[in-house]
Simulated assay, not measured.
Amino acid sequence: MDAIPSWPAFLLAVVLIAASPGPAMALILRRAALGGFRAAVPTVLGLELGLYAWALLAAAGFAGLVAASEVAFLVLRVVGAAVLCWLGVQALRAAWCERSAGRSGTTALPSSRRGGWAGFGEGVIVQLANPKAAVFVIAFYPQFVPADRPLFATTAVFALVQVALETVLYLLLAAGVARAGTWFRRPRVRAWLEGVSGTVLVGLGLRVAVTSR
């Protein structure tokens, strides 16, 4: 993959994409703030595996079929919206329980500390159930793949570089947020964070529900 002139532009685009807000960043921030760095790592890996899977599916032509099919795109859109809204409702429920416990002077149940595999699966599902991910990879990678290079192999390498770079950036973000974990896990702050996270996730789910190709 040497001598590809589009590498600098590709790397810059990946950094800008990773820095943009969306379901991935919302999940990572919530996990790191409430569970610490170790809780965020599986979610980051799951999200990046989902992204890499979409990239390979795009290179093989499957993602294009999904984006072009009205039924497939609708099903994916409904599933993606349902997953994000479910995660948002869970966070809002946790915020309500935290506030109720604070008003009554009792101790709230700790936020659900799902294991690593659960966080990993959550990341994979959120990424694979996102119809905008399918549209994104179809439009994104062909811009950087030279015409004289094999599409599948070159896309796979580009996607691997993106996954590696995003993983590093997201883990750095998670580490930074986790350093303030004690403050985030104070009852009032945790309730506020759960409420904000839940609202953002539900909003993203509704946006996915009405998204078009």
Rank of each mutant, 00 (worst) to 15 (best):
V71W: 12
V71C: 10
V71G: 09
L74I: 13
R77W: 04
V79S: 13
V79C: 15
V79Q: 12
A82K: 03
A82H: 10
A82Q: 11
C85F: 09
C85W: 05
W86S: 13
G88Y: 08
V89K: 10
V89H: 10
Q90P: 00
Q90L: 03
A94W: 12
A95K: 13
W96K: 13
W96S: 15
C97A: 14
C97I: 15
C97P: 00
E98Q: 15
E98R: 15
A101H: 07
A101D: 08
R103S: 14
G105W: 12
G105S: 09
G105A: 08
T106R: 15
A108F: 07
A108Y: 05
S111A: 11
R113N: 04
R114Y: 08
R114F: 05
G115Q: 08
G115Y: 10
G116K: 06
W117K: 04
A118I: 14
G119T: 11
G119M: 11
G119C: 05
G121R: 12
E122Y: 00
E122W: 00
G123L: 09
G123C: 10
L128I: 13
L128V: 13
A129P: 03
A129M: 03
N130T: 12
P131Q: 10
P131M: 09
K132V: 03
K132G: 09
A134N: 07
A134E: 12
A134Y: 11
F136I: 04
F136R: 02
V137A: 06
V137N: 06
I138E: 10
A139V: 05
A139S: 12
F140W: 05
F140G: 02
Y141L: 06
P142T: 04
Q143K: 01
P146T: 01
P146I: 01
F152P: 00
A153N: 03
T154I: 05
T154Y: 03
T154R: 02
T155A: 00
T155D: 00
A156K: 11
A156T: 14
F158M: 15
V163K: 00
V163D: 02
A164E: 03
A164Y: 08
A164I: 13
E166F: 01
Y170H: 13
L171F: 06
L171H: 08
L172I: 12
L172K: 10
L172R: 12
L173S: 07
L173D: 08
A175W: 13
A175F: 10
A175R: 13
A175Y: 11
A178Q: 05
A178V: 09
A178H: 05
R179C: 09
R179T: 03
R179V: 02
A180G: 14
G181M: 05
G181Y: 03
G181L: 02
T182Y: 00
F184P: 04
R185F: 14
R185V: 15
R186N: 02
R186K: 12
R186M: 09
V189M: 12
V189S: 09
R190F: 05
A191P: 04
W192Q: 12
L193V: 01
G195W: 04
V196I: 14
S197T: 07
T199H: 07
